[in-house]
Design a protein around this nucleic acid. Sequence first.
DNA 1: GTCTATATACCGATAGAC
DNA 2: GTCTATCGGTATATAGAC
Lengths: 227, 227
Amino acid sequence: MAPSLESICRDLFERHKAAITIKKERVAVKNMMRILEAVFELSRQKGFQTMTLRDLSRESGLSMGALYSYFSGKDELRSMILRQGVAYTRKVLLEQARVHANPSEKLEAAIEAHLYLSEVLRPWFYFAYMEASSLSRQDKRKATEDELATERIFLDILQEGVEDGDFRCPDAALVAALIKAVLQDWYLKRWKYKRRGITVEQYARFVVEFVLIGLTQRTAGRPLQKR
Amino acid sequence: MAPSLESICRDLFERHKAAITIKKERVAVKNMMRILEAVFELSRQKGFQTMTLRDLSRESGLSMGALYSYFSGKDELRSMILRQGVAYTRKVLLEQARVHANPSEKLEAAIEAHLYLSEVLRPWFYFAYMEASSLSRQDKRKATEDELATERIFLDILQEGVEDGDFRCPDAALVAALIKAVLQDWYLKRWKYKRRGITVEQYARFVVEFVLIGLTQRTAGRPLQKR
DNA sequence: GTCTATATACCGATAGAC
DNA sequence: GTCTATCGGTATATAGAC
């Protein structure tokens, strides 16, 4: 199924059926989407913590009481959203790495998949990044593991390329971190690229090209100048 | 003067003398440091919005009333910190670009300077990044301008290198953005690099090398694969 | 299922003693 | 300069009508 807010909200409903008091899927998914769109908009404007449930009630069109039929409290609302996004991203990236044969193509496919996914679910990605820091100790630990898991996908592709002799890369972990940082910049600083008229296709091409050059042209390196 | 929390707090006091009711510099700077360290710690733990002034009072050791002698309200506290950090960073980077002759050295010096600065003032940089999104409309506009101004410093160096024939770079703006994204990752995801035992020197060397290879080995590029 | 009305608690900010 | 005590406002969460 193509990634979209609706498909991921339906998934969300399935996973939280037990806790949600509304039983009709059509009603529940529709309202869940209204709630999430409102959360993303309000969080973008002023942050999740600053957003009050009264704000959310106004923006989503549901009453305070109705909101509490969909989640048990403000904190649970946040962690529910975060958990759902992570699993989805991982699934898509692994799929892309699997269907291609050689490391260069895998890398290109994974980079493009991440960019296009963050394009469709940009509010979700933005929210996840910004709110990950204000989690409970336990949830925060899980969030760092998720970050590393995504990076691991890129790292595995890089290491496979090194073994095959396609890539020269003495510090694959750093390259994987660089890729992740650059992919994050696309959805975190979207205004910057939009202002310059850069499309996701152009950005994807730039990232793939720049990284592949670094992976194929690497020399042994030179000592860092002391000062 | 070498960058440090104390020197930048002294600067802060000088610039806000009019609004601060405490007149003895020694007392004011000492307490200002305690306040800022507490703000950074609490913001890191749970975000600036979630941090209450009661939290800040407890963590800093000053009473609620005393806090209000150092800033006129919670919002002013935040924007005071943000404004102070930006001017400082810009000054240091420009200084580094100025004292070197050729573009490669300028680029290397600016990258290293940014990394070392974010090392010394890491809590400050982290705070600035995380809180920039929840600003007033006017302050937010200023924050985006500041972001572009920092990027502009790198862009100017790149363009100078292209003119001199040292760099091949059809999309300097994207490379500048990439550099900035990677520098930000160092202070935003510090735990990741710390866990892997990567020092700031190693990271600086990696970034400089990877970017310079991209700038000297670039081909005309190839079409993005359709799918 | 969704609403309004309200209980309870905590926040930012200030006044005034020391 | 720093403190304690307190005001007014607003937040989360719930109870009960429809």
